[in-house]
Amino acid sequence: MSTFKQHSVLPGFNLALGFTLLYLSLIVLIPLSAAFFRTAELTWAEFWTVVTTPRVLASYRLTFGASFAAALTNALFGLLVAWVLVRYQFTGKRLVDALIDLPFALPTAVAGIALTALYAGNGWIGQFLEPLGVKVAFTPIGIYVALTFIGLPFVVRTVQPVLEDIETELEEAAAMLGANRLQIFLRIIFPAIFPALTTGFALAFARAIGEYGSVIFIAGNMPMVSEITPLLIITKLEQYDYAGATAIAVVMLIISFVLLLIINLLQWWSRHRKALA
């Protein structure tokens, strides 16, 4: 194609594309660029100092560490849940399947206070954990719990369709050729779902690092210990440290964009795999 657009008899292209680009620019692109322009007012040295103070570094460690752990948990248990939903029948399965999407539909603040009440020392679950020495609420573990909740649907919903589409003939052939259940899983099923699994993991991770509402209630929000990066941005904003807040935001934005690209590539890989199969 040496021209911009292929010829088509359908009308409305210019109008649709024009409106789309205008809307996107006004609502998304121009405001996003404000962060970069604002940060460009700092010199490299100033920028580097701001984003590498111990408090900021501690928040990165916490945010990315907890997000990674939560996404990993969701990868493991999400696969389990998807497996159970696709391959087994049990009473209440439809209800369970519908509820998987609850973290998508439930406001983050509601999730936040519910999880905090649950895992606090006198909560339904916390009261059993605390005597064992496991404090969840107001510690990094609480952050991990909240981020697991928030990422729960991602792996389940990306793996489910792939599991449903797996041809049982492959498994039956393997069984006839003498493979046991574990071998069938490791060598036939797992490679088929791996792209979807990594996509779900990346989606859960990306969502977790930016999460605010469900985390700030259950986290202790103590600097250097249980302060997530989004909270640090807000704290700086409240102190009118616009430069600091924006600089940290730009770091998060760059990481988010890189993740978005990786996710797009992973999804392309999944589709490519499917097309070949």
Binding site: T20, L24, V28, L29, I30, P31, L32, A34, A35, R38, T108, A206, I209, G210, E211, Y212, G213, P230, L231, I233, I234, L237, Y242, A245, T246, A249, M252, L253, S256, F257, L259, L260, L261, N264
Partner: peptide, 23 residues
């Protein structure tokens, strides 16, 4: 274009609010 449309999904809500304060 499709990737640009996905941008708000990948941005932390706090940053979404921040950029409007910046404007």
């Amino acid at each position: 274009l499709t990737t640009l449309i996905d941008l708000p999904f990948s941005v932390s809500p706090v940053i979404a609010g921040l950029i409007y304060v910046l404007v």
